[in-house]
Nucleic acid binder design. Structure first.
Lengths: 206, 206, 206, 206
DNA sequence: GATGAATGAGGCTTCATTCAT
DNA sequence: CATGAATGAAGCCTCATTCAT
């Protein structure tokens, strides 16, 4: 026999921890996008997540930590998509490189706001923030390093230092989007892709 | 309430406006370097500049404005040094490109803290900050664009789009230093220079 | 923002003290009217008066003093106008009383902003402001007291206490305008005059 | 930074919202009385209320709002006392009017400081403050209007415009106390009551 | 007399974080 | 687990007043 229900019992007060964490992450992202990181308060975040202020601290140590978690997620997701594209590109090394670049180019703009908001905050660069352990998080440069390194090993690419080259190319991409976005320059995507591909090819002497 | 009286009546209180502005700029830079932008307060800045709190607002509208002024100065100075190096490199286009790169590589590390502090603050990227007029300020990418463009025109370089290529290379440099610094990776400067030069050369098909 | 330097020195630097005081008084009044007393700064006042900040203190001890001077002026001018109207009213006591009232009613609205701004500031009522010597300044209540007192002496009016009655009637007038203004009630001036006159007449048993 | 830890862990931090609001209202009143509105800071208010500075903003939007709330309360309480006195006065209209006046006269002085402090602040009269919704708040003039209007309807009083007359009489009372207080005139209360009553009677042609 | 750059005390308000329930 | 009232340090900025020129 079912126990007597009390008249009002709308939502269950406890949710699985994972879900709560998700809510916070997503609520935070949303308000960060809406108002910028600096202008976002804990109040906004928790309200967006549908959670009380104190609850936040059950899942994150500080506002800063939420930001870092978000950044990690963002990059990890992007890496994942790119690597799938590379896998789908077949055996040819140039095709693989092109696939890597195309996927990156396709991804960056689609997450402009995200990228923009997350990576332009002192959290990543402040004096203390380096303390945050980022080790092991999948990153773009690592992904490209793997690809170029393998290509070099296979004799398809040539470069003095695969890792450095990968880092340089990744950096170029990253900052380039920053500049394009922040200057509101209209650049034809096709053209941009062509010029970028040229640089990538030349960088590994294809 | 009137300021406390001191026995002495000597020191002139007013300085030329230019000097006061300088003081503030330098005081601000110093404390930004010491404690990071976010942790710096008006109090710190004015104390470092040897000036009363209210005086700050006679010269800048806000903390943010001081930062922007500093950023402009920093980039302008760097561009100036680099262009002088290029001028001194003679007629050869490759030598000029190398001079440009060497000067940049030489400059970046020497001003690491500066670069670091100034360019990693929302001021440059925040939702509202784009409002700030940066037009006309000399910038690195512009400088490289000029060089590559001229080289292409002279038939010495080849690239689909000089401007985009310049931007990509500048971005690569800029971010690369970020990453190196923030990861505390020890990279042999010689090696780094060689790898970077290779990328630059290849980018313009030298 | 650095102060603008002007090379030129057009106007003569010294004016007669009386004129300077006038300038300040009028400049002050103007900005008080424009932005309200609380929102007005010394900066505004001196700028409106076309005078340097320091100069202000050559003529007034403080912002407060300027306000008091303005209040005195305002009331004095009003009293003067009213007494002229009474004088012009002839020998009849009721006609005189009516003249007094009509003049007051005519004057109040025309200086609404003035009255409003000047008399609604703590200066008049603050804990310290009573220190200000207002003795001897011509005032409305005094003027009415004189009229009623004389009328009583002449056997034309009757009231227990001319002074108190005058004060009550003046107060009624003063506050009434406040209320009307601040509630934006539209009251027919004719009607208002009639009702007020009835009160005045009855107050002195006419 | 976290608040300093104290050894004790006893006192409950939260009170019913009503009580907190009360505390703030009373603390505010107390310091307003002690030092005047203009000289009172949030610091003083919250200290007097035994509350942290931030807590204030949980209950009021600004210092100004606290003042307005206090003013409303003061007038409402006074009206209430007066109306009770009128009720107790019986059926006779003149007795009722006298009761109204006597209660008002009895009340004003007893709350001199309160009245003084609360009603002499720009809040009530400033350019923006009219925005504050005062609609529906019981007020003195409204109370007197009711009484006179009813008396007129009953044929006991006569006046051109009950509302205007009530407003004039209230204003007279209000300002008269101001003037008496601020000039430190010693007026015999009996005498004052007699003179005032005469005005009231005559105003309604009793 | 006149100037206006400089002063600096202090106000208001925000907001990350805590903790008693 | 969850809550949200309470905290209070700290920041930015204003502005009446001074004083060296």
């Amino acid at each position: 026999m079912p126990p007597a229900r009390t008249a009002q019992r709308t939502a269950p007060r406890t949710k699985p921890a994972d879900q709560r964490r998700r809510d916070l992450l997503e609520g935070g992202l949303q308000v960060f996008l809406e108002r910028g990181v600096a202008a976002t308060t804990l109040e906004h975040i928790t309200k967006a997540a549908g959670v009380a202020k104190g609850t936040f601290y059950l899942y994150f140590d500080s506002k800063e930590q939420l930001l870092v978690a978000l950044q990690r997620e963002f990059e990890a997701r992007m890496v994942q998509r790119i690597e799938q594209a590379v896998l789908a590109a077949g055996e040819d090394w140039v095709a693989r490189l092109d696939a890597w670049l195309d996927a990156a180019l396709a991804d960056y703009p689609s997450e402009r706001a995200l990228h923009d908001v997350l990576f332009h905050h002192p959290a990543l660069a402040s004096h203390e923030a380096d303390v945050v352990d980022r080790a092991g998080a999948p990153d773009l440069a690592g992904s490209l390093t793997g690809l170029i390194g393998a290509g070099v090993a296979a004799g398809a690419f040539d470069t003095l230092d695969p890792e450095l080259t990968a880092m340089l190319l990744c950096s170029a991409l990253h900052r380039m989007f920053d500049r394009i976005w922040h200057r509101d320059q209209e650049i034809d995507p096709e053209h941009l892709a062509a010029a970028t591909r040229q640089l990538f090819h030349r960088a590994v002497a294809v």
